[in-house]
Design a protein around this nucleic acid. Structure first.
Lengths: 228, 228
DNA sequence: TAGATTGTTAATCGATTAACAATC
DNA sequence: TAGATTGTTAATCGATTAACAATC
């Protein structure tokens, strides 16, 4: 273990490791090598070993990593050994979709409140939660120990909502709105705007709009794949 | 203009430029400098100039970039000067949320068909589209000239759906399922899994679970912000 | 002991930023 | 002409990968 500052790229890979480790655990696989992880996750084994070594000596030479132990360790690193509460602001379609995903429930991350500015939404139910009015935001965040805010409002509302979340004491924000939020450096913000992903995909389309008329059979050979 | 290979990081910034340029255009701003773009988008001005210079000399020394012209150029680079059709597979909550977003409509990217494997979903309507059965996938993709697939099915179905999309001739995939898809290198795949974003946020929470009891007023000073 | 696999250092590769001549 | 800002080269910074001694 060294005490360098950990890069964002490293941190972003931890949940990916965790996800696959959980799968192995369910299948009762006891041990896994960086080689095997790399193959499944499309990552270089050396990179995986290096990532993990930033945080401790979790593996055993000649053996690999103990799956349960590594899960426990990565959870600790990610602060997911305690329950982390999140609030969702914006009870539109996307907000509803997110609150349905219980993905994070497995991982001690839980949406415990939903807010919306629209009076017609307030009081309606999303799963087990009742949509609340914005003027209850601060009090709820504090009383329910909510540390993460998820923004699923339209772009022109996003900065305003972010400001309110920050004023209420939130520590980190996942922003689904297609805007760059301004915030103090102490607040961690992740952009989860899929329009960027989708539009950038178009760049990689084969530019020959119709002129490369092959039968589509050629490229099907299995090859090293690229993913991001 | 040089003819190096363009890195993924560069391509991913193009839609972000485009988004803000569209906003400027709506406000009838005629010209913008890399300086100003950088400030709004939290990017280094030199990086913006360099990104754009990969594709051509779009700016004017001493003046900056013509907003309309730059929009046109970036659209061309991203293949968005033509309509790009996409198919959505998975008519669950997330799928419905996505099909509602008309973000991409502005940008010539359009979801023109929706599929689901669940018989109870087939035939129902999402906006203007009728959910179709999977056995019509290939024929629809070909007849409607669909080039991009969006996967919003549960993780255990994602690889199977990807295989079908690829067999039907799709060129690129936006994958919302929390799985690493395997595909030929010729198929471009972007992962849009927000669970990774959300869980990695937890890493940045202030680890002192309760022991740093400050009043939250301190960190509010405006500082350079960090976003990703 | 032989084979496997880690943790870590060194080498490579790539991306960001600074600096500045060119020029509007 | 003076001020502003590009496009581009060079410098810096950071991340990935290769290689290998240590060791299970």
């Amino acid at each position: 273990m060294k005490s360098e500052k950990i890069s964002e790229a490293v941190v972003r890979r931890l949940p990916i490791y965790l996800r696959y480790l959980n799968e192995l655990n369910k299948r009762e696989v006891a041990t896994v090598s960086s080689q095997e992880l790399g193959q499944k996750l499309d990552l270089n084994p050396a990179q995986i070993r290096k990532d993990l070594a930033y945080f401790g000596d979790f593996g055993r030479k000649g053996i690999g990593y103990d799956v349960s132990y590594l899960i426990e360790k990565i959870r600790q690193i990610l602060n997911l050994d305690q329950q982390i509460n999140a609030v969702l602001v914006g009870a539109g379609n996307l907000g509803q979709a997110l609150s349905n995903y219980n993905f994070y429930l497995k991982e001690n991350m839980k949406i415990v409140a939903v807010f919306d500015a629209n009076p017609s939404k307030i009081g309606t139910r999303i799963n087990t939660l009742t949509v609340q009015a914005m003027d209850e935001l601060k009090e709820t965040i504090q009383s329910k120990n909510i540390r993460i805010g998820i923004i699923t409002v339209p772009d022109f509302e996003a900065q305003n909502v972010a400001d309110q979340l920050i004023a209420a004491g939130i520590e980190a924000i996942l922003n689904f709105a297609p805007t760059i939020l301004k915030a103090p450096a102490s607040i961690r913000i992740h952009a989860a705007d899929f329009t960027t992903d989708l539009l950038s995909l178009a760049y990689y389309l084969n530019n020959g709009k119709d002129d490369t008329e092959d039968d589509g059979q050629f490229e099907e050979l299995q090859q090293p794949e690229r993913q991001s």
